[in-house]
Simulated assay, not measured.
Amino acid sequence: MDNCPALSRILWSCMLLSCLCGLSYGTELSFVTCGSVVKLLNIKHNVRLHSHDVRYGSGSGQQSVTGITSVEDSNSYWSVRGTSDAVCYRGTPVKCGQTIRLTHVNTGRNLHSHYFASPLSSNQEVSAFGEEGEGDHLDEWTVQCSGSVWKREEAVRFRHKATDALLSVTGEEYGRPIHGQREVHAMTAPSQHSLWKAMEGIFMKPSESPLGNRDSSHSHTEF
């Protein structure tokens, strides 16, 4: 999928549309896999990681990333992908300590961070960057969890590989035009503000082929 980002976005859009039109299936998967499309909940503040085609008015001027309380918003879906240096084969469980990219499904931009100051708290800015799923090394995040793989029921952290800061929410709220949305930023010290859990989404199943061939089977949770 990483080699055909435009095709991938079309595929995910079709999948999401079919689910939103009434198709919903339970899943036996207990872990997050490469190629899955998920919503991520900050468990301290009960907001889902969100983005939209609204740019910051300061700092980098890149696409903003926020936290929202709404469960249904389609702008909160992120695709779990590999990096330019390490392919993340569809359906493979994401390991604790693995570096991934999170691509915003509706805009094709990657979760990104750098040393710009965030607009409300002056912590490290988090933005969405790139085109059609391709950006740069500042789009890479390491999954921090306690076992061998990223379990769906587990609260995990995402550490920005280049700056060593953690994806966080501390409660600052925006005014117009995105009134009530929370600032998402990155902070060096781990805390309750940097714990996230995989929620609604489409979870790709590992291949069941005895030869180990990778397939495109998937399972859904209810949206």
Rank of each mutant, 00 (worst) to 15 (best):
F116L: 07
L17P: 00
E154A: 06
S217V: 10
R48K: 08
S219R: 06
V105T: 05
S76K: 02
Q192P: 04
L7A: 15
E134K: 13
T66P: 03
S209W: 09
S13E: 13
D2N: 13
C4W: 11
G82Q: 03
G108W: 04
A162P: 01
S168M: 00
A162I: 08
R90D: 07
W196V: 00
L17G: 09
I68H: 06
S118T: 02
V32L: 09
C14K: 10
M204L: 12
I68W: 07
M199G: 05
G22R: 07
E173T: 13
K39Q: 14
R182D: 05
V184N: 02
S146R: 10
V126K: 00
L29Y: 03
D139N: 05
R152W: 01
R214Y: 12
V65F: 07
R182C: 08
E140H: 05
S60Y: 01
R182V: 08
E200W: 10
H52D: 11
T221F: 04
S121D: 04
S219Y: 03
E140G: 01
G59A: 08
V80K: 01
V105W: 00
C21K: 11
I10E: 13
F158G: 02
Q124A: 04
Y25H: 13
E72A: 15
H50Y: 09
E172F: 13
L40P: 03
S24C: 15
G130C: 07
E173Q: 15
R101I: 04
M187F: 09
F129R: 03
D136R: 07
Q144F: 12
L120K: 03
L138N: 15
C19L: 14
D73T: 09
E208D: 14
H104P: 03
A86E: 09
R90G: 08
V184P: 00
Q181K: 11
M199P: 01
E172I: 05
V149H: 05
D2S: 15
H218K: 11
Q98K: 06
R176I: 12
N110M: 04
C19W: 07
Q124L: 05
R176M: 14
Y77H: 06
I43N: 02
G130M: 06
D215E: 11
H218T: 09
G22N: 07
T221W: 02
V65T: 06
I68G: 08
I100M: 05
C145F: 00
V169P: 01
S194N: 14
C14Q: 13
S58M: 11
G147A: 06
C4Y: 13
Y174N: 06
H137E: 15
I100K: 02
A117S: 14
Y115F: 14
R90P: 04
H193M: 12
P210D: 06
S8W: 10
T188E: 10
N3I: 13
E172V: 09
H137T: 12
D139T: 02
H104T: 08
H185E: 02
C96W: 04
D53H: 11
G97Y: 07
V184G: 00
F158M: 07
C145T: 01
K205I: 08
K44G: 09
R9L: 15
V54H: 11
S58R: 09
R159K: 15
V65I: 12
